[in-house]
Design a protein around this nucleic acid. Structure first.
Lengths: 168, 168
DNA sequence: CAAGGTACTTGACACCGTGTCAATTGACAT
DNA sequence: ATGTCAATTGACACGGTGTCAAGTACCTTG
């Protein structure tokens, strides 16, 4: 909080006039960032895709490119998840929202009859959701050094290979 | 530290007579757990497998079943990774060791000529390493509710589908 | 101009968790 | 009986979050 106040050229106490707790501040920051980046619209765009396969690709691209934008605040929120109920709920809600995107993509595949036959929609959603987790992005880009573009591209192929039935 | 001391029926200060810092204690705990569970041997067993495919399966099973055993301490270590150099190094070392197991399995596939042709060994190792991360285990079993056996089985099929070239 | 409100300041303080230190105790071995 | 070792109690420093009180600077409105 001291650091944040400094950057804002405020006293630490003044920050508390705007946000009651650290968690609240971070959560507000995520909303602000979302608005700034027009995330809603970008995710909405992925819903326009016709085929399930296209939709999957569009969703991965939209979400995958969103991660680095929110990673700073996201990491801070994640770090306090274990000790702060408010932070945990905010994070989990975000992840549940994201999961709906996954479920929608899987559903589209399912309707197309292109969902890999040995995966139920639920399990497929679990897999996609986990594959696209922020932690995985962290590992692949920051630890393994994948450039962002490679991350998007490789995850798209990966997801497709796992989830989409091989075209006869 | 207070809680740990209580459980050990010691004063908090006495704990510091044995372990200089919280991080040191947790790290020692991981070593102790490893020894107790004979993890070395179990991982070694996976090296005996003949084909790359077998080796991959054995490794996933060994590591995947190791995760829940170390998860308690592992989580505590992970939680302080961002704020404690010692903890970060210990964790990263563990993950690097695990990565070697991944690399060995990928290498075996590569030698068998059964590694999926559109993946370089390095990228394949990155993918397997990420797939088998503790965070992914956490998401799939604790958040998605996969039973441990399902986790192992599904991850094996998943990994195989991603990494192993479809047999002509 | 005066009064009031608003945003902010400084400074003090409580609470919690980690880590340190000094003085003491009790058991055991030589 | 003496020394050593493991543990105890109690106090304290430090850093971070969150709270509170009192004061200030500025702006609006009557």
């Amino acid at each position: 909080m001291t650091d944040i106040a400094k950057r804002a050229r405020l006293s630490r106490q003044a920050v508390y006039l705007h946000f009651a707790t650290r968690a609240e501040l971070l959560i507000a920051a995520t909303y602000y960032l979302d608005e700034l980046n027009g995330v809603e619209d970008r995710l909405k765009a992925s819903r326009a895709a016709r085929s399930g396969d296209e939709r999957l690709g569009a969703f991965i691209e939209a979400w995958g490119n969103y991660i680095p934008e929110m990673y700073g605040v996201g990491k801070a929120l994640l770090a306090m998840k274990d000790s702060d109920r408010e932070a945990a709920e905010a994070w989990d809600k975000r992840m549940q929202d994201m999961r709906e995107g996954c479920a929608a993509a899987i559903d589209a595949l399912h309707r197309d009859n292109t969902l890999s036959p040995d995966l139920s929609p639920d399990v497929a959603t679990d897999v996609l959701w986990t594959l696209l987790s922020v932690r995985n992005w962290e590992l692949l880009t920051l630890e393994c050094g994948w450039p962002q573009a490679a991350y998007i591209e490789r995850l798209s192929t990966l997801a497709r290979r796992i989830l989409v039935a091989p075209s006869t």
